[in-house]
Design a protein around this nucleic acid. Sequence first.
RNA 1: GCCACCGUAGCUCAGUGGUAGAGCACACCCUUGGUAAGGGUGAGGUCGAGGGUUCAAUCCCCUUCGGUGGCUCCA
Length: 729
Amino acid sequence: MVRITLPDGSVKEFSSAPTVGEVAASIGAGLAKSALGGRVGATGANLAKDGELVDLAHRIEGDSSLAIVTAKNRDGTVSPDALYLLRHSCAHIMAEAIQRLYPGVQLVYGPPLETNFYYDMLFPDGKVMSADDFEKVEAEMAKIVAENRPFTRYELPIADGIAKLEKEGSKFKLDNAQRAVEAGSKSLSWYATGEPGKNWEDLCRGPHVPATGKIGAFKVLSLASSYWKGDEKLDRLTRVYGTAFATKEELEQHVRLQEEARRRDHRTLGKQLRLFHIDEMVGQGLILWTPKGSIVRNELQNFIGAELRKQGYHQVYTPHIGKLDLYKTSGHFPYYKESQFPAIVEGDDLTKLCDSGCSCGELVARIDGVSAQFARELNERTGREVIAQDRVMDADKLINGFLLKPMNCPHHAKIFASEPHSYRDLPVRLAEFGTVYRWEQSGELNGMTRVRGFTQDDAHLFVREDQVAEEVLGCLSLVKIIFSTLGMHEYRVRVGLRDPDGTKYVGDPANWDKAEQACRDAAKTLGVPFSEEPGEAAFYGPKIDFVVKDVIGRSWQLGTVQVDYNLPVRFDLSYTGQDNKPHRPVMIHRAPFGSMERFCGVLIEHFAGAFPCWLNPEQVRVLPISEKSAAYADELVAALKARGVRATVDHGNDRVQAKIKVAAEEKIPYMAVVGPRDAENRVVSVRARGVEANLGEMPFDAFVAGIAAEIDARLLSGAPGTVQAAMTK
RNA sequence: GCCACCGUAGCUCAGUGGUAGAGCACACCCUUGGUAAGGGUGAGGUCGAGGGUUCAAUCCCCUUCGGUGGCUCCA
């Protein structure tokens, strides 16, 4: 007797172990037809969620819970499990189609993803696939779907399975199998698309939909390249992306959403709205902020600057370069050389060296090198060999130079060190919109979100051990103010902690415990879910990161708060304690936006270019009906400007309809249409962005005051208190 | 950095082995029009750059720069 518990709590009894499909059939013919798979779990388990996703043909050997997976859940929502099954199965179908069209193609790995799937494959020498072939592949796939062949699972003992794969000669599949064995698999499973031994098959853990005909809609999307196991020394593979849905409508909607996402892409909007420019001649990854983009950035800086003053920060400025010794002390040079612009070395030094026949290798060594005294002092101070002996050389051989700063902390540390501090003075909070330069790989550059020169809204807090928790909390509250003012709620928080058995960390373990707890506690105050990630801490301290997704689903780290026990030692920072003895401060690095560039890029997508009034480059556009109302329009703009509102008037020769269209395209939050009637009654006719209708008339002075108030309060568009809200009540 | 694809007017994009086109934007003229495009005229391009093949290259080939999508990488 096998007892199956269904999601509604009812129990079905079977005399012998039923398959998922048989259970479905026992419930109803309709369900049997639409069933794609099931989730099984032990009796009492939280059904559906915790169970294991299995084939329809899976036999349930003992008492168990079972949720039948169909394309749509009972509440009409699309089932992620169903999409997983569909996409995994479709990956097989695509692989079969491609192997038919391109004999000799070797398969590697083909998993389903959140919105699509891919299959990595190795094309034989000289053969390639191009986007032009997608139609051909789709046609071949359509045939396989039309044949409605069943996905048939069979298993082999490990030894037999490995022997089979060895005979077939695919090192990729053999490797997959070996890894499955290492991970604890007791046998190896194959899925034939049809009949084993007769039809196409693939080594696969499953599960799959019952038959190819269940794939309602699919599309081959794109090609990319990848490396086997992500290692560029191994085989270069072709990755073919596709997606599948239960119905054509869902696929079409997905395609529409993708198009919408592309329209929201900050690179597209940035060009359309003239927010920033990247110029070939200036360089890759170097952002030119246009007048409009600069307004957005400047407003953000003013906003955060005001918050910083409230929290007791001091504004500082530091130069864009520093001597190599500074970064040799901080440890950034030469260890992070790969991601730094090359050192700036004086021309005379280089000429002399070249004349003396100095090799490139030697040149590099002399730039990287330090004096014996430098090495001894730093190694003693840190208690570790942070400077290896092979970097030590005679002082007269060293070449000094400068580095474009990759971070601001060394400069700030030197400001702190420039005067003595009492324990009473701490915390010292130094803030700077500091521009840093990093040599990112060219393939990694992306609009404003990954660049080579960027400005961090950086600050370094020099605090006593007992102040770490409170200051971390203060940093987080700043982040919270920023995110809530901007209506950004879709972010993830990562708390990076020590690896439990790691030895690479500097600082006292007891202090680490306290700092980690401080980070956890602070993260809790944000009221959003956060993940603790052991091993993700920097070697110098725990950290809290904020991660958001862009419109095409890529994750970007924005703000960060990091506790640092390392730099204070390296720079020998100290303060005088109550005991009149020197004590080591702790540094907290924090950048709530992360970088102005990345943050603005993400913000453009967050608002789809429709910034709230306070941030928008242009806040009000006045549209005179005709030249007859030009003077009244000018008067309105002058009144708005007097209140600090960014307003312009469209004196163009167009009809008001055309002016509205242009202003709407520029995503200006408010339009004030003025004609003879308005002038006579001292009113303006108001339109708000995103609202089709004319909102009606508002007295001249009330409009000016209302807009100014909305801006001062930094309200989100349409929020209570805005002019728009007042007029749509 | 690696692989694939792409690069034509300010923007979005057509097109061709015989040195180029549209729409929008821009300028000028007509129009003075009450809520998402009035009409006309005109200006604007070494077809990313360099080299090669060819009688002839924007088009074919090579190199290079830049972009996009992935991979790898982000102290």
